[in-house]
Design a protein around this nucleic acid. Structure first.
Lengths: 332, 332
DNA sequence: TTGAAAGCGGTACCAG
DNA sequence: CTGGTACCGCTTTCAA
């Protein structure tokens, strides 16, 4: 691969001049003929600058590290992350995906810091400590943003209060007169940061209402698992279920139907995340929708944090939880 | 951020020694006490090596560039890409996501080459020329893999013959005795590399069978758009539809149902990609399934290409298309 | 207007 | 066994 020295040689100028020309350096005037020679030489050699060398010299990168993307990234995160990525790209950042299955906070922070990202966005998954955030900041991160149920000192937090989702679902079921409520908990790994709070939120809401409590129902995202759960339903005596997610809800609903139970007459079913498919199946699925911020908005937040040198500690944590609301359709 | 020089100073050794210790250099023997001093110093300072500096010196990176991830990345690509990413991570590669909306092949190749990736995986989207592949290889890419309908000279190709999908769908509908066939084409941007060949394949299959031809039906992935399409259905006189995708198929099926048409009596509907939800809705949706390679397999292919210095030109293109087959359920 | 040279952080050769 | 040092490719003062 040709280097800037090769271009300089071919153009008959110094490496400095090459750099000035190709970066349109404003602080220095280069004659038009020289510019042309340099441009042609670069073109001819197919010169492409070396990003690592540049950022080594510059002392900082334009890397935004997007961490903790699970294999199972269900809606509404998929579209959200897509938007985020596109927006950051438009702002000229290099988005580096970093899946970190099974890494501890310390290991993850170290691995991420090696890249010297200018910002880190941690989506679910890895739980960072204040010390980890400190490590990242010292490594050049001007912004560390966590998206998820927890809040880390020192980091911007886009709190997604999953407990609120569970609470709304339970409240809705209670309102509809149900009392014996089950909560489907996914058996798939990696969803605990979401499923745990959802279950807990439902539990709290039910307790607050003076009802008996909720029953956790492990289930995998397969037809077989749903059928197994539905088969034992009558003996459980539950009259309502909050199914973590619309996907799980629909699976279970189909299985309950096949097992001869009527929805919502025998069992009320509510999901979450307001997926499109919830409106396709009949009865239409009730769900809990929660206002996910747009990817663009988070991208702007990151961009601002990167540019603002002053990062008042107070401002770091003021990004409130998005509101959740139950949407009643036909299944409850 | 502390550098290896800081660690060396604190430990009272040279930078070279620090490097040897922290990288467990096998070619050199360092005394145990020294190792300990270095380790402690590094720990104490919270030293994290600088990836860019390292790869600048090494002359190569462990970056695998995953390019062309669209915002709307529908199944079965989502899970596939997730697996791929996880597998590469396990093999100790750094996966860099690079969305390139609206970039030409030349621009994209340049931008990618700046990162000096050791491998490039281009998923749909950007169309690379042989020259672009050459640029990337010169920039250090030991493997360039394209995943999608087209095949680029010089690159490994994981051909996903979308035309075959369309052809199978159409053939299935013809077999079921249908003659006037519509093909839903998504209005959403970014899907053309997939939707175009699917339409074309269906068209060819219908022509080959001596039938009249197919009608392209633009539709967005929303209830409204589906309803609009369904509303004008009777005047179109079509007795079957291939709907690009199970998602579009289900939307349309629900809309047709609401418009008073019976599936499959009045209209046969077939989708593609064999999504889970196609088995939840009744009637169960017929679909075209095609064997997507697992992410693990592609990761291994990349890994092998990276390690094998010899890359016989003949081997570069032998990765055949995955087979597609129609799965009949209840909607056709 | 252009060139020479220092140095970003880390690695690996060679000398001691 | 360890230290000195050259160098990876690029940017950016400082001089000419």
């Amino acid at each position: 691969m040709p280097t800037s020295a090769d271009v300089a040689r071919l153009a008959g100028v110094s490496r400095a001049t090459v750099s000035y020309v190709l970066n349109n350096a404003a602080s220095v005037r280069i004659s038009e003929p020289t510019r042309l020679k340099v441009r042609q030489a670069a073109e001819e050699l197919g010169y492409v600058p070396h990003a690592a060398a540049r950022s080594l010299r510059a002392g900082h990168t334009r890397i935004v590290l997007l961490a903790g993307w699970h294999v199972r990234v269900g809606p509404p995160y998929g579209p959200f992350l897509g938007e985020l990525q596109a927006a950051l790209h438009r702002m000229d950042y290099t988005v580096v995906q970093y899946g970190s299955p099974g890494l501890s906070g310390d290991e993850a922070a170290r691995a991420w810091a090696e890249l010297r990202p200018v910002a880190v966005i941690s989506v679910g998954g890895v739980v960072l400590s204040a010390h980890n955030v400190e490590t990242l900041k010292r490594a050049g991160a001007r912004a560390v943003v966590t998206v998820g149920p927890t809040r880390v000192p020192g980091a911007h937090a886009l709190v997604l209060d999953q407990a609120e989702v569970g609470a709304r679902a339970a409240a809705h079921l209670l309102e509809r007169g149900r009392r014996r409520i089950g909560v489907v908990v996914p058996e798939e790994g990696g969803l605990e940061p979401f499923s745990g709070p959802r279950l807990e939120g439902a539990r709290r809401a039910v307790r607050a209402a003076g009802a008996a409590g909720v029953v956790a129902l492990p289930m995998a995202c397969t037809e077989e698992s749903a059928a197994a759960l539905a088969a034992g339903w009558r003996s459980g005596g539950l009259d309502a279920v909050f199914a973590y997610n619309d996907e799980y809800a629909l699976l279970l609903m189909a299985a309950l139907h096949d097992a001869g139970l009527r929805v919502p007459a025998d069992v009320a079913v509510i999901g979450a995340d307001d997926l499109l498919l919830g409106r396709l199946l009949r009865p239409r699925l009730s769900t809990v929708r929660f206002g996910m911020p747009t990817g663009e908005r988070l991208a702007e937040l990151v961009d601002r944090a990167v540019r603002e040198p002053a990062d008042p500690a107070g401002a770091a944590e003021r990004h409130g939880p998005a509101a959740a609301e139950a949407v009643r359709r036909e299944s409850t």
